[in-house]
Amino acid sequence: MRRFSTALLLALAPAAAMADEDKMPQMDFSNPLTLDQVGWMAVIIVVLYLVLSRWGLPQMGKVLENRAAIIARDLAAARAAKLEADRAVAQLTATLSSARTNAQAEVAKAVADAKAEAGAKAATLNAQLDAKLAEAEARIEAARNAAMSAIKPVASAAAGEMLLKLTGSVPAQDELVRRVDDALAARKAA
């Protein structure tokens, strides 16, 4: 029986606690403290508002603004540094490529110069060789001419001897020399 009454009490307790409306201190406006707390709240909250709006919030706002400014400044510096680095890299690339172009041009020029020099040397050598060749040919020609002109009196003499033996008469010396010359010229031409 006692257990049953306890169980009943347990089941009803929350309802009983809430049902007693007139015992609710919040609704007891006959108690002067209920409204007096509002007056003191007004004092406390006005002081809190003044402290926060004049001191706390502006100071904290300044801290946040300061941080935002520092972050923005650092970001701008980083961005400027990156631009600088990009420009340096671009400059480096340009310098490298121009150096490469210059080097290639130098190499090409050196090769062309070497070729030209070699060509010139070969040309002079050829010219010298040609001159020597021409000189040698001239010398051979002169020697042959000399030999040929040495042949002429011998041939005239031999022709005169042969004619004397064959015919017994000797033609005029001029006639003989002229005929021998003709014959030699004809042979040479042939």
Partner: peptide, 29 residues
């Protein structure tokens, strides 16, 4: 007629101001 609820209000306001006082001491980045 300063009530026990006003004590709690005073405590709340004091904690808020104290938080600002401590929080603003270093002003660290």
């Amino acid at each position: 007629n300063f009530t026990n609820s006003n004590e709690a209000m005073l405590a709340a306001a004091t904690i808020i101001v104290a938080l600002f006082a401590v929080g603003l001491k270093a002003r660290a980045l």
